[in-house]
Design a protein around this nucleic acid. Structure first.
Lengths: 147, 147
DNA sequence: TTATGTGCAAAGAGTTTGCCAGCTA
DNA sequence: TAGCTGGCAAACTCTTTGCACATAA
């Protein structure tokens, strides 16, 4: 069974090895934003014949092929997620490290506008909100397990 | 003559050495967002008896004393600026590396609102716009009226 | 005087790379 | 088969730290 990313690799004509296939599968199945070490752990769990260097080379390859997006949430290591056509920003729960994606069109418009008013053309941007759960709010992932 | 930062250090009761005084002066006079190496270069130009380790230790000390703000603009090294009470975000000119500060109250409000709607309380945030200068020399060519 | 700061070099963390064997197309 | 790919360890960048000496208060 081809993973989503493996299919994209095939479309792009990338040579597929077992290692790349495994890493592609791991990334296709990751709904979080894993760092290289986490990808490495998940990949070696499926197939021990993968080195950390290959993970680094492969995520870079995928990033350059626009298959992955690289993020830096300020903890000194790169985190990856599958590239999506739908742009979004990130809210990082600083209690748990969990990353929540969100999109807000008003903010998107403002970003463009600010750049223009300063005499620039927006090429890229980064918006990250670092936050703690509201005490009385729904996202209760502390003790209670999900059902 | 005491630099602005040196005065703050005195207020906070930090022990002042020649090295700290020099680094404080360099940072007080820097209107850009220098990285550690640049601070080191500027400091050693004033006084060669300063090691890079001391610069690292001093910027960390100043950061912990809320004298400096540390930024990470995605190039793998930390950049510093004097802490100001006035919050602002950054636009990075990707052609030159120049950093422009800006403040937009609409964005500030939206950040809070988004976090709240997701069930979180905003603790910190980061907004960076990566942009190139508009080819047109006149920045006032956007259709929206200025704020 | 005494706690603290500094210089130097070594150590760390994350990431990249040279080289040769191994595998894909 | 030809040439790209992977494993391993060494190298690299940025940053921190152990230790002995120097210095502010």
């Amino acid at each position: 069974m081809q993973s989503r990313i493996e299919r994209i690799c095939a479309d792009k004509g990338l040579k597929m090895t077992d290692q790349r296939r495994t890493i592609a599968q791991v990334l296709s199945e990751s709904i979080d934003h894993p760092d290289v070490d986490l990808v490495y752990q998940r990949a070696t769990a499926l197939d021990p014949h993968i080195s950390i260097a290959t993970v680094y080379r492969t995520v870079r390859l995928f990033e350059e092929a626009n298959i992955l997006e690289k993020h830096d949430f300020g903890d000194g290591r790169a985190r990856y997620e599958e590239a999506s056509n739908a742009h979004h920003d990130h809210l990082i729960n600083i209690k748990t490290g969990e990353v929540i994606e969100f999109y807000n069109s008003e903010i998107e418009v403002l970003k463009e506008k600010i750049a223009n008013e300063l005499g620039y053309k927006l090429v890229d941007h980064r918006l990250e909100l670092y936050a703690t759960p509201s005490t009385d709010a729904d996202p209760a992932d502390d003790e209670d397990g999900p059902s």
